[in-house]
Nucleic acid binder design. Sequence first.
RNA 1: CGGGGAGUGGCGCAGCCUGGCAGCGCACCUGACUGGGGGUCAGGAGGUCGCAGGUUCAAAUCCUGUCUCCCCGACCA
Length: 594
Amino acid sequence: MRMTRLFGRTLREAPSDAEFASHQLLLRGGFVDQLAAGVYSYLPLGSRVKRRAEQIVREEMDRAGAEEVLLPAIHPVELWERTGRDQAFGETLFVVEDRRSRRLVLAPTHEEVITRLFAGHARSYRDLPVTLYQIQTKFRDEARPRGGLVRVREFTMKDAYSFDLDEGGLDESYDAMYRAYQRIFDRVGIPTVAAEADSGAIGGKGSQEFLFLTRIGEDTVLLCDCGYAANAEKAEFVRQPSGDEVPRPLEEVETPGVTTIEGLAAFLGVEAERTAKAVFFTATWADGREQPLFAVLRGELQVNEVKLANAVADDGSPPRLRPMTDAEVADAGLVAGYASPIGVGRGVRVVADLSIPGSPNLVAGANREGIHLRNVNFGRDWEAEVADIALAEPGHLCARCAGAGTEGRALRSEHGIELGHVFRLGRVFTESLRVSVLDEQGTQRVPTMGCYGIGVDRLVAAAVEAHHDEHGIIWPATLAPYDVHLVALGASRDAAVAEEADALFEELRVAGLDVLYDDRDESPGVKFADADLLGLPVRLTVSSRNRREGVVELRVRAGAESERIARDAVVARTAELHAAETGALNGAQASARL
RNA sequence: CGGGGAGUGGCGCAGCCUGGCAGCGCACCUGACUGGGGGUCAGGAGGUCGCAGGUUCAAAUCCUGUCUCCCCGACCA
């Protein structure tokens, strides 16, 4: 491609709306253009990068045995009502009306449609297992798009769905996708961590996220040196006992005006972990039923609402939680600031965190204004269902490596961008949409599903986030919009330079390389600055000076030095470099992760 | 949805407080010079100052409303 013909131009200054390096560089380089909040156009350069990313994803899906399909992006809303996910997605769902006032969903994901498609074409175990995928535009009316391409409202996703007869089959399908994901992230040169995750609105049981760790990431992941990695919503940790003494008699203590754990600990001169914290929520289930929830944790811990919702889930479907209103608190017979797990009224569901049973003699509320209780003991003074409902925080001990002789190492916390997510979905959709196939015995069986997503736009953004310097992007060879940046200096003054650059352009292309040829009549500074900004892996410079010496200058974008290569060796050398770089990425083992 | 910030040529900004000619840098066009890290000079084109209403002889500027974008939070496969 000749740059004189390339649509799009570079900017010296980034638009002030862009905060992240990836966003700024993609805008400055003319890769993308913003149309509205979370809505972007891809210019020719950006489009090529995206296409290369998609192709890598496609190749790995095919290699893993998945078959490509293409599903509609607009769905009758009734299909979403059948699974209840019109409610689950809520306002995130884009809904439009057609001319006959029928409501249609702009698809945010495709479990419903793929399940229906499967149901219509699969009849027996002979049709299984099968994994179908597509690369397609998704629509989600995010409450707050942000960070350039990191959270957008219209985006390209590779989504795959597996169907198996039993758990063993699902495990195999899931593992195949998991390995394909590792290969994909290796090939695009983005280091990722696979973290255990909550399944969210998609439902199902068991999922892992592939995260690119970066300060700008929206997700928080907890990591342990033992290899454990989990999303903050999911991370498990060890509760260390806060005391081992025998239960002492319950006693009241006056605590006027002390309504917070910090205040209580300070007032009584005890550690926060010697107190019990009460948090109240109103749970709303899919059928509209509401129930007051009373969560009890040791004072130093925070409630993890996702865990809490899962702990009280009904049939695998967790309620939505919201803090109780003051009126609801009063209705439940609770005294805010002094709520006590002892003597909670009927109708209020009490859930105690794992930390509670191992913590004797806690200070808790008395459910009377200005009074707390000392020496509250779980089991003696009160009972409740016990579950893991606390948020893991840095410094907490890893639950995975605890027990095996050690007490567990301290977790650390990092931010990350979720690039991919693999779910063991189970039978949520096949059951709600009444799908079954015949097994070998001729009996109806409900297939079990997995679903697997990759955000292609995020892949592009993460690649830039992972690979750039103060001058611009440093594309991994497998994603670069072109392989070679050919710069001709002073071609307008020296016809021989133009001639040599034109010839080289042609020879490189014949050698199978994609070349971006800077044939503009610009000063060397402008051309080099643009080459650095655009970030192609290899830059070749043809000039009068080089030509006189019979050389072409070669510079690897990721490196510091440039080499002078004999004119007749430069094509071979460039092709060799390109092959080495792409080969290294494409053949990379799943190593550099974590 | 709550809180904060911002809308002035394609990009970055000044002008607004104190109403009175729409400006600067970059980018763009023409010409000349220059020629290895965003070069110089000369001449140009391009803006209903987000939108609507109001105040005023006069509004980018003051007032009211509204829309959009960005950031923090809530939410989020």
